[in-house]
Nucleic acid binder design. Structure first.
Length: 462
RNA sequence: UCCCCGAUAGCUCAAUUGGUAGAGCGAGCGGCUGUUAACCGCUAGGUCGUAGGUUCGAGUCCUACUCGGGGAGCCA
């Protein structure tokens, strides 16, 4: 007999069908004459209720061995459930305990646990309702992302994880080395990187953008989707040292095209997840954030606000609101400013663009006014900045000037500059943090709970 | 890294002005023929984050450290 997944049993199967299911016991209500087992196999939020009669072979011994967390296999006939809470249930013909779980030591109980506690048992937390639902939704989000780009003929480009170029100086980098650090520490001599694996200092990538630009200016529209590393000592609910980033890069796109794509992209993912994960999404709306579905509907139904930085500053200045940090043209907006715009003033996603050149990196295209660059940030309620992108500077001379202005050595980026020497074209792209997108979609407050194994300062267990 | 808050039973928390530890849930045992956060009864379970200090006496006050949470910066 084939094993049937619980999700399919609950959704498609009919009374009198015979099936075998295997999974983990969420809870058991045991009695002498018969027992109820709630079985979950990860395929759905809901459990399958298995009714086990005392007449089943080995009843007493099996029931004694089964507690929360045990793994079991059961065969039986499906019946319409007379009880409330489920359409269908299984009446077991056979029940086999595969692996027991000592109730004295098994950390998960059939009660609510704090997310802080669950992080300490990351090897068991996907067995909970919330983290299981996050895993399914995260999976659906990644599938939707690929669908979005593939259906638009974007090429998926695998950019390197290890890099010798400090791309754009986007934060502190993790150094990668095969040098014997213990010996080096004793020697107290200058480090000779020619002896290192790559013959020079190398690091984990902080962005695949520069390499994506290479493929965008040869293959056409493309995107990267991979792990990204930042060695910042960040301790917040929206930062990780290791996270996944999607970075589309499109030739012949100007900033307006870039903004349109970013907006369609987010809307498409939200629409897909609402359609494909309705049960999990209802759960998040009920248990995690009561305004979640409303917030997401707002995203699917309304155009994002597009607002030049300069106008944003004016709105903030006229708002009459007391901010901890003063608003002033030429300074970067603070979190409180961004949150005011997206959560209070507009109450919907906002795309800010045309930022002062002085606060943005060298590769962003300089506007005709000379004061601003074609940068854009997509801000969403709750999460804040979810996308950062720009139209890239395609003019060789302007780019070299900007590098010098930003203390970047042009010689180190000779290949990047070559793209401007040979067949240069206007092009644009952006970076979207997968975990922040999952936070937006699930309403989960802490980014550490939307990635299976979070890496943060002082934390790399599991 | 900075600011604020916290750490007490397996989990979530309580303990007046400093006087030697409690509840709910969970667990174990017993009961129960349709339960679904099952229910009812009994039982066990704690070097009060770590190290110092003040005091006749510290879970409670002081210092340092560790870890966690919220906010900030960095950004996605």
């Amino acid at each position: 007999m084939n094993i049937t997944r619980v999700a399919r049993v609950l959704r498609d199967c009919q009374p009198e069908e015979e099936v075998e299911v295997r999974g983990w016991v969420r809870t058991i209500r045991a009695k002498p004459a018969f027992s109820f087992i709630e079985l979950n196999d990860g395929s759905s939020l809901k459990n399958l209720q298995i009714v086990v009669d005392a007449a089943v072979d080995g009843y007493e011994e099996s029931i004694k061995q089964i507690g929360t967390g045990a793994s079991v296999a059961a065969t039986g006939t499906l019946k319409e459930s007379p009880g409330k809470g489920q359409r269908i249930e299984m009446h077991a013909a056979t029940l086999r305990v595969i692996g027991t779980a000592d109730a004295e030591t098994y950390p998960l109980q059939k009660k609510r646990h704090s997310f802080e506690f669950l992080r300490e048992i990351a090897h068991l937390r996907p067995r909970t309702n919330t983290i299981g639902a996050v895993a399914r939704v995260r999976n659906a989000v990644t599938a939707s992302i690929h669908n979005f780009f593939q259906s638009r003929d974007f090429v998926y480009v695998h950019t390197p994880i290890v890099t010798a170029s400090d791309c754009e100086g986007a934060g502190e980098m993790f150094q990668v080395t095969t040098l014997d650090l213990t010996r080096l520490a004793q020697m107290k001599t200058e480090i000779d990187y020619s002896q290192d694996f790559f013959g020079k200092p190398s690091y984990l990538t902080v962005s695949g953008q520069l390499e994506a630009e290479i493929y965008a200016t040869s293959m056409g529209d493309c995107y990267t989707f991979g792990p990204t590393f930042r060695a910042e000592n960040s301790n917040t609910s929206r930062h990780l040292a290791e996270f996944w980033m999607i970075e589309p890069e499109m030739p012949f796109y100007e900033l307006d095209d870039n903004m349109r794509l970013a907006e369609e992209f987010i809307r498409s993912v939200v629409t897909d997840v609402l359609a494909n994960c309705s049960e999990d999404m209802e759960f998040f709306n009920l248990r995690i954030d009561k305004t979640l579905l409303e917030t997401l509907k707002n995203i699917t139904d309304n155009e994002f606000i597009r607002l030049p930085y300069t106008e944003a500053v004016e709105i903030l200045e006229k708002s009459g609101k007391k901010f901890d940090y003063a608003v002033e043209w030429g300074r970067d907006l603070q979190s409180e400013h961004e949150r005011f715009l997206t959560e209070e003033h507009f109450k919907q996603p906002v795309i800010l663009f045309d930022y002062p050149r002085t606060i943005k990196p060298f590769y962003m295209r300089v506007n005709d006014d000379g004061k601003t660059v074609r940068a854009m940030d997509v801000l969403v309620p709750r999460v804040g900045e979810i996308i950062g992108g720009s139209q890239r500077e395609e003019r060789y001379d302007v780019l070299v000037d900007r590098m010098k202005e930003c203390d970047v050595e042009p010689d180190d980026y000779w290949w990047y500059l070559d793209l401007r020497r040979y067949g240069s074209v206007p092009h644009s792209g952006f970076g979207l943090g997968l975990e922040r997108l999952v936070q937006l979609v699930t309403g989960m407050q802490n980014i550490r709970d939307v990635i299976p194994f979070p890496r943060t300062p002082k934390n790399a267990e599991f």
